[in-house]
Structures are given as C-alpha cells and as structure tokens.
Design a protein around this nucleic acid. Sequence first.
RNA 1: UGACCCAUGGUGUAAUGGUAACACUACUGAUUUUGGUUCAGUCAUUCAAGGUUCGAAUCCUUGUGGGUCAACCA
Length: 555
Amino acid sequence: MSDNLQEKESLNFIESIIDKEIKEGKTNVYTRFPPEPNGYLHIGHAKSICLNFGLAKRFNGKCNLRFDDTNPVKEEVEYVDSIKEDVKWLGFEWEGEERYASDYFDQLYDWAEKLIMEGKAYVDDQSSEEIASQKGTPTKPGQESPYRNRTVDENIDLFRRMKAGEFKDGEKILRAKIDMASPNMHMRDPIMYRIIHKEHHRTGNKWCIYPMYDFTHGQSDYIEGITHSVCTLEFENHRPLYDWYLNQIIDTEYRPRQIEFARLNLSYTVMSKRKLLELVKEKYVSGWDDPRMPTISGMRRRGYTPESIRNFAEKIGVAKRENVIDVSLLEFCVREDLNKRADRLMAVLDPVKLIIDNYEGVEEIVSVENNPEDSESGFRDIPFSKEIFIERDDFMEDAPRKFFRLSIGKEVRLKGAYIVKAESVVKDSDGNITEIHCTYDKESKSGSGTEASERKVKGTLHWVSARHAVAVKVRQYDRLFNNDDPAAFDDYKTYLNPDSLKVLDNCMAEPAINLLKPLDTVQFQRQGYFCMDKDSTKGEIIMNRTVTLKDGWAK
RNA sequence: UGACCCAUGGUGUAAUGGUAACACUACUGAUUUUGGUUCAGUCAUUCAAGGUUCGAAUCCUUGUGGGUCAACCA
C-alpha cells in the first residue's frame, strides 16, 4: 500500500524523463552542480543544488560538484571556498573530491587539435569587433571570416603558438567551423579558445589560452560520466552546440544529455550575480553575507535553516515556465521549521517601565515552557519583580475595543506570571509615557491552580524584569527592495528599501539570552524568530531578526 | 520580421485523453497564558479560435502573449 502511495507521488518533468529512461533500460543517473567560482551562491543556486543532488538521491545515482573555472579574469579561490561551505551547509555531499573544469584543460586542448586536424576549427586573426560585425543578427545570416579557409597546417601551427604565448590577448582566437548562416547564433563559428595572459587559481601560469564555456561544459560532463546535465533555460539555445561538440569527440554509446529548467526568481529581490556583486561593491549591504542578501551565506546569517531552504526548494517545484515565487512562501517555510525547533524567550524591543504598586516582596521566580510545540524542550525559570519592562506598543491610554492589550482600567496576563490592571501613567515633559503603574491580582499566578489563575483575560503580554534585564542590540531586517520585481528595471537600485534594516539599541531580554551562542535561533515571544549574530561579543549581544511572526492583528 | 522555448486561481506546482487538485497568499470562524501554533471554512484557475475524439488542460492547426539568443562571460 505504501508503495502505491509512493508511485502516485507526482514527478517533475525531469524526473519523468529519467523515470521513462529507466523503464527503457537506462541504468544510472549521474548529475552535477557546476558553479562558476565568481561569486557567492544564492537561493536560486539552492534550487539547482537541491534539484541535482535530489535527482541523484532519488534515482540512486551520484552528483558531482564541479567548478566551471575557465575564465581566470573573474574567478577566485575565495568563491571556491564559500561555495563548498554553502553546499555542505545545505546538507549535500558530492561524489568524491570536488572537480574542476580546469582539470580537463589538457584533454580539452587535445580535442581542439583534433578538430583542427579534421578541418573543423580554425584560427582567426580578427579583432572581436570585426568578428562581431560579421556575426549577423538573429534575423540576418553572418559572413564568413577571411581566415576561415586556412590550411590545417597553418591552423595547427598558429594554435600551438597561441598556446606557447607568442601572441597577445585578443590577437588570435580559435573558432569552430560550423555555419555562419545558422539561424542559431551559437552555431555561427563559435569561439573555442581565447588568449588570456592571466594566472589561474588552479593551473597557475601553465596556460595562456583558455577554453570557452561551450567548448568545456559538455566535454567535462562526458569526462565525468554525467548522464543528465541539468541547467537553466538560457542555455536552451546552446544545446545544439553542446551536442555538436560531443558529436566530434564521442565514439561510445554513452552520451550526456542537457536538460533545461526555469531558474528561480523571488519577489522583492534581485538574483543575478552581477547585481548582487554591485550591491556588495557599492556598499548597499555589508557584504555577501549581509542578512538581507538572498545568498546562502546571507540567509544562514539571517537565521534560515538548511531544512527550511530544502523544503522551500521542494515546494516551488521544477518546470520550464518563467516564474516569480512570492517571498512569503520562503517566509512560511522558515516559520514552519523554526516554530517546531526554536525555544521561546521573552525580549522587549521597545521597553517602557511597568510598576506593580501593590506587589509584595522583591522578586520571585516563575517557570515557563521553552517551546509549546516541543514537549521535550522543558521549562525554564525567569525572575519576576515589582518593576518590569513591557513593549511600548502593548499599552494605550485610550484603546479601541479590539485592542486586546493593556490600557487604563483593563487587565492583561503577564506571560507565565500574574494578571495586572493598569491604574495610571507618568509622563515626561514631552508627554511621553515613562511609567505605567499597575496593580496585580496576587492570586492569579500562572500554574498556581487557584481560581484566579484560571481567569480568562483578553491579552497576554511578554515582559522582562527590569533589574534582571540583559541589554541586547536587535537588527530588524525587512525586504531589501520595496518593488516586487526590481530586476525588471535598469535602475533597480532606486527601489532599494530604505527601511530594510532598523537597528534597535535598547532592547531588554530575559537572562536566559546569555546562554545563546552565535547562530543560535530563538523565538522572541510575540515578535518573531531571531538569530544571534556572529559579531556578538561578551559585552554586546546582537540578534538578527530572521522573520516576524505572522501577525493576525496587523492594524 | 529568424531559431528555440513557454502559457492552468493573486503566486507557484499537479492532473501524463476520462470528476481541474495541492501549497502559499488573502479573508471568515473555533481553540489558545504568543493577535503565534493548531483546527474548520471561504474567495479564486485551464490565453484565444478552429479541428481530432464518445470525451481535450492534455493531441493537431492557426493566432495572441511572454521569454531566450547578436561577450574573446558562464
């Protein structure tokens, strides 16, 4: 029966393709995640990672991590390291050691010579401008290069001299000889190798010619035994070239297959590496791991969990249709996860003092459950006293009838403690409330079992005992852009949300906050989920707001 | 005036010729010592026109709309 259920589970279109192939006798599934180490991974990459590793897992296959490092101008070791960390953090394990396209440079070079020998590639002496001008347009065919019909001997000689470093950057180039009239621009004698005199993060100064993406990717797949080369839609037009190159070198039955899917777009954010890099370089954010960034490292610092991101990737599905996922789905996923696992803590973000005038004694201890969603999580003790802080928003002198919080003459429950009634307020010369004076019902203590403790009151407030309060700094993060599709505009930066970060310096938390370590997540009761920032020190606790709680009141 | 791809509620994703469904969002209500959670419910969907078929979201044709492609980027 359970088998039946599993069979009924719907497959995405890639899984359907593989499922069909397996039924037709194909035996293995081998995928790869192929980032270029020229930036940090973002939530869009997470979709691809979950897809590729997920496919391997589902079909008992393998998945490689391969760095597509064919352009030393843009690539750096810093990015390699961060990418490895992020993939691991997301919970995936690649097959063996990570791979590098640069590991295949020798083989790629040999294949290039082979193509030259067969008259299928030639060296072009023209400038990039000249080549571009002969390329034609999508609706007009291109013209053939005057160097297109050089002899094999001449081409080989020139190519070897390119490799030997006899020419400057841009002086010569190796092109495949395909079809300048092809309706597919990528087939109009695409560039295979260009000269770049620049040290490579892996191969050092061994090479001064580097292969282009198209001449690298399919062959790398072939070398690694990849069966399904899953990439995003913009490579759809490259597929004929992917296949053409493979046709030149393959002499076995095995052949990798490119399949394209629609990349992830998220509302209220930008996803392109170029734009993210701009935000970092121009200091609109504090770095790649700024908690407002849609990068994996930013989300980690913000307090997102790997589980919530994987679950998100599962929920958004995989298809070929352009899509913009509502960021509220991401928020739903992290709340869903954190609700189950985050211990509750009380913290007052905008404190105002509340004094219980008839409170007897100095202080006492109350006991509160750590997480009502997790019976294993137990209870903790919290100090309570005559003077406490509550949220400024939780008090109104004259409240509308739907206001379930504190106002003069009205009662509320202090979470885990007593029911209090507001009697009067003290204000400063500007009219700001500085103290709220209350009386409490001595018999109403939570859990005491008395009749008074069972009384129902409209609202329950979080609070912190004034003399025990721990000062914390809170960073309230909000969406980075205030337009739901900023990427649609060239001047997307004008849509940056000026309130995407609010720093609150005078927050007060209960003493248990001292037990937290960096990256620990808690729920501040009635506020949201917060994650201790890595910049916290002994003297200063910094909490990043991951996401607010859903607010059913929302004035 | 090219090639390739795509079109299902507000947003996503299913339904694989046989009752259009699931999730998110929004909104109701119940429960609640978090205006959270949980539970119950409501609103809302096949781009258009032809054709094939007993039967079409699904297959065909033609439109329409959208995306991608003219880096010595990936």
